[in-house]
Amino acid sequence: MIYAVASGKGGTGKTTTCSSLAAIWDVPVTLVDLDVEEPNLHLFLKPDLDDIEKAYIEVPVADEDKCTSCGACRDICQFKAITVMAGTLLVFPEMCHGCGGCLAVCPEDALSPGKRELGEICRGTADGHPFVMGRLRVGEAMSPPLMRRIRREFPGMSEKGDILIDAPPGVSCPAIAAVTDADCIVLVTEPTPFGFHDFKLAWEAFKPLGKPMGAVVNRADLGDTSVREFCSANDIPVWAEIPYSREIAEAYSRGDVISKAIAPLEETFAGLRDNMRAVAQKGANHA
């Protein structure tokens, strides 16, 4: 089963939840950090990252001798990555989405595949579990292609057990890409106006995917009751509530995994894990 831990608003506790679940997951699981812009899961699970591989996207390279400046590549490119100026073809590799259209339409065979570095895929082991994370190169604008590289490994990972994904914040393309493969989505929120607003956005964004979803209310005694009222009105189960406490904030600030550092929370996260497992299993039985 594939489980994604997501949120609309950043900083609500995705990585806290994901690391806490990882520490008490009691069957084989691959831990995957898909928040490639700012991956943080490794800071808490402290995997030994012994395999670091650069990831690239294919971008066109022009052969001036063969190019007749016909403009077919420029015309198909939807991303303004190719232009023809004064009879010379100019490629802007950082704008390229790697669709391969220009290479496919060039009648002169004047374009060949080159590459742009997207970032790294880092692999290792954390507490005996395989660990994989993407780390976007600073300056690279596009995170979905790097995420896609990792997502393509999901079928292989699934054969070995569960997959637990730490997703990026927000509700735009990277966030959707991170939860698309999941059998169950956990939405982490906090009961503040910002937390509630972004929770609604995330719920609306993910609902069309038709996957079972449940909420984790972090810093549960801050703020107001609007998150809980919304959950109850929309049949969104609240699978765990994590209290607000300075002890938890301090443990997090030291890089501790809170389900291990703070005894009563182990049970909270075990309950969350069992709820996630039950709905994912139920979904699989229906399919």
């Binding site: 976007l136 604008a141 990026p168 990277p174």
Partner: peptide, 11 residues
């Protein structure tokens, strides 16, 4: 601004 270091932050 937006969180992260990707497309919206670069823009």
């Amino acid at each position: 601004g937006a969180p992260g270091i990707g497309c919206p932050v670069i823009s």
